[in-house]
C-alpha cells in the first residue's frame, strides 16, 4: 500500500503522459477522414504493467503505433515526465505473430535488434537461457514450435532493456497451457527489468492475471471509458477465486464494458 501511495506522489522521469486530442486516418474509398482516437487521456507510472482492453477495431494497434513512434501524425502529446518522448529511448515490441527473421538463428534473431557489442550479445544469450531455449540457440525459427517462437520474440522484446514495452495481443492463437507458460515468463522478465508495459488484449481474464491496472477503451473513435486497478499480490494464480469475483462484479456493474460501452 505504502509503495503505491509513493507512486502517486512522487513523479518519476519516465512516467508516461498520453493526451491525444484526435488521431484520424484517411478513408481511401470515400476520401474522407475518420477519427480512430478522440480525447484519450491517461498517465502510466514508470514500471507499471498496464493492460488495454477494448472491442476489436477500437484503434488499439493505432495507439501502439503512436506510442512506438512508427506513426507520428497525431494531434496531441505523448511524452515522459522528463520531457522526452518514448521514441528517444529503447522500445520493446511484440506483435500478434512472432515476426522472426526465418534466415537468422534464434540467437541472431534476438541480438540483431541490438548494437551487437559483446556485452549485448551476452545479454541476448542470457535472455534466451531464461526463456528455456538454450538448446535452440543456433536453431532456425522454422525448427521451433509456435510457443517457442513467441518465447524468442519475448527475449527480443526485452533485449534492449526498453523503458517501455508494447505488446499487441501476443498470445492469441496459442493453446491455454502454452499461453499460461508464456505469461509467467513475461512476468519473470518484467520483474527483473521493471519496464513500463502496455499490453493490448481482448481477454479480460488475461488482463486481470497480468496487469496492475486495466484501461477499458470504447469503440472508435476510441477513448478511455474505465480505469480499473488490480490490487492483487503476485505471484498470481491463473484460476484465482478473488480475481474471478472481481471479474463478475465488474461485468455486473458494466455489462457492456467489453463491447466498449459503459
Amino acid at each position: 500500500m505504502e509503495d503505491q501511495l509513493n507512486n502517486k506522489l512522487i513523479k518519476k522521469p519516465h512516467d508516461l503522459f498520453v493526451d491525444i486530442i484526435a488521431k484520424s486516418y484517411k478513408d481511401k474509398n470515400q476520401n474522407t477522414y475518420n477519427d480512430a482516437i478522440k480525447n484519450m487521456q491517461f498517465t502510466i507510472p514508470q514500471g507499471q504493467f498496464c493492460c488495454l482492453v477494448g472491442p476489436s477495431g477500437c484503434g488499439k494497434t493505432t495507439l501502439l503505433n503512436l506510442l512506438s513512434g512508427l506513426d507520428r501524425k497525431v494531434e496531441g502529446v505523448i511524452k515522459y515526465h522528463d520531457g522526452t518522448i518514448p521514441n528517444d529511448w529503447p522500445i520493446g515490441y511484440m506483435f500478434q505473430e512472432p515476426r522472426l527473421m526465418p534466415w537468422l538463428t534464434v540467437k541472431q534473431n534476438v541480438s540483431i535488434v541490438t548494437n551487437q557489442t559483446s556485452e549485448e550479445i551476452a545479454h541476448s544469450e542470457n535472455l534466451i537461457e531464461e526463456m528455456d531455449l538454450i538448446k535452440y540457440m543456433n536453431a532456425f525459427p522454422s525448427q521451433l514450435s509456435g510457443g517457442m517462437q513467441r518465447r524468442v520474440a519475448i527475449a527480443r522484446a526485452f533485449v534492449n532493456k526498453p523503458k517501455i514495452l508494447l505488446l499487441d495481443e501476443p498470445f492469441i492463437s496459442l493453446d491455454l497451457t502454452t499461453a499460461d507458460l508464456l505469461r509467467q515468463m513475461l512476468i519473470k522478465l518484467w520483474n527483473s527489468q521493471k519496464n513500463t508495459i502496455i499490453f493490448v488484449t481482448h481477454d479480460l481474464r488475461e488482463a486481470m492475471y497480468l496487469g496492475d491496472r486495466i484501461l477499458f477503451l470504447s469503440k472508435g473513435p476510441s477513448k478511455v471509458i474505465h480505469d480499473l486497478k488490480i490490487n492483487m499480490q503476485r505471484p498470481r494464480k491463473a484460476e484465482d477465486i478473488q480475481m474471478e469475483n472481481l471479474r463478475i462484479k465488474l461485468i455486473k456493474e458494466h455489462p457492456e464494458i467489453l463491447s466498449g460501452k459503459i
Binding site: S68, G69, L70, N87, P90, I91, G92, Y93, F95, E97, R99, M101, W103, L104, I112, V113, R156, N160, L166
Partner: peptide, 27 residues
C-alpha cells in the same frame, strides 16, 4: 513489410535494416 516494421520499432539503423532485414528477402 511486416519484417521491415520489426526493424523500425526496434530502431535498427538504415544500413543494417537494408542488409539484414531487406536484402535477405531478395536473395
Amino acid at each position: 513489410r511486416k519484417i521491415l516494421e520489426v526493424a523500425d520499432v526496434f530502431k535498427v539503423n538504415y544500413k543494417k535494416k537494408f542488409i539484414n532485414f531487406f536484402l535477405p528477402q531478395l536473395y
